[in-house]
Design a protein around this nucleic acid. Structure first.
Lengths: 147, 147
DNA sequence: TATTGTTATACTCTATAACTATA
DNA sequence: TATAGTTATAGAGTATAACAATA
C-alpha cells in the first residue's frame, strides 16, 4: 500500500475517532476548530474566521449561534464599525478549551499507541514536512469544511 | 502539534486531493473503492460488498448502477440462487483499473514529494503499524462511508 | 455603492424502511 | 418465513443568493 493511501485511510479514521471523543463534550469538530481559532486569535470578525476555516460566512453563523447560546463564545460589536462582530471566548469557553486539550492528548495517545516515544517524534517530523510542502495551514483542519 | 492532529489534517487533505485526481476519470472515491474491491474479490454478492465497504446495501445499488451503465462492472445472477447478483469487472473495467492505479501512483508521488525514498519507507512502516493496531482493514478506506 | 452579518431557498446526499422476487 | 436486491421517503447538511444594517 502507498504512503498516500495509508495516510488518507488513517487520517480519516483519526478524524472520525476524534469526533466521537469530543462528542462527549457536546461538540462537533468544526465547533472545536472555531473555539481553538478564537482562543488563538481573539477579536477577529466573522468574515475573517470563516475565511481561515475555509467555510462560507453564512455557515459560520449557525456555528457561532450554538456556542453563543451556551455561553462559550460571545460577539462584541466594534464601536468604530458597528457592522463588525468580534468573537471572543468567555470564561466558560476558556475552561472548555482546557477540556478540549485534554481530550486531544488522550486522542493522540490512543492513535499513536503502537509507537514508542522516539518513533512518535520521527512520525511527527515526517508529517510536519509533508504538511508544509503541501501548503497546509498549521492547526487548521481541512475537514472543518464539511460536517 | 500532535501526531494525531497532523495525521488527521494530512489524511483528509490527501483524500480530497485524490478525489480531485480521479474526477478526471469521471469517478468518485467510493466508486473507486468499489472497483478495487470487485477486482480483488470478483463474484461477491452486493450484500457482502456493502458490508466490506461499510455502507448500507441500498446505497450500493446506485453505485453499481452507475458503473454498470458505463460498462465497468456487471451483475451476474447466480443460477443456484437467483436472488444473488455476483459482481464482476468487465474488460473495460480492467482497463479503467489500470488507469486508477496510475493515478494512485501519481497521487502518492505528489503527496510524499517532501520525502526521499528512505524516508517514505520509514513513513509507510510507521503508518502500517498504526493502521494494524487501530484495526483498520487493509485497502478499505473509512471515507467510502460518506461521499 | 460596498461590506458585514443574517436569513431563505433550493439542492445533494443519506439512512430507514417498505417493497419484490426468490428461496 | 427469511433473505437479496431495489425503490421510496423523509431528514440532515450545505452553498448560493437575497436581505438588512452600517459604512
Amino acid at each position: 500500500m502507498t504512503a498516500a493511501f495509508l495516510l488518507s485511510q488513517l487520517g480519516v479514521h483519526a478524524a472520525a475517532a476524534f469526533g466521537e471523543r469530543i462528542a462527549a463534550l457536546d461538540l462537533t469538530p468544526p465547533q472545536t476548530g472555531l473555539i481553538r481559532l478564537v482562543a488563538a486569535e481573539p477579536g477577529l470578525p466573522q468574515q475573517a474566521i470563516a475565511a481561515r476555516l475555509g467555510m462560507p460566512a453564512s455557515r459560520l453563523v449557525a456555528l457561532v449561534d450554538g456556542l453563543d447560546e451556551r455561553g462559550i463564545v460571545e460577539r462584541r460589536r466594534n464601536p468604530e464599525d458597528r457592522r463588525l462582530h468580534a468573537l471572543h471566548l468567555t470564561e466558560a469557553g476558556g475552561e472548555l478549551l482546557a477540556r478540549i486539550a485534554a481530550v486531544g492528548r488522550e486522542h493522540d495517545e490512543a492513535i499513536t499507541a503502537a509507537l514508542d516515544p522516539g518513533e512518535r517524534k520521527v512520525l511527527r517530523d515526517l508529517l510536519e514536512r509533508i504538511a508544509e510542502q503541501q501548503g497546509l495551514t498549521p492547526g487548521v483542519h481541512p475537514g472543518y469544511r464539511r460536517l
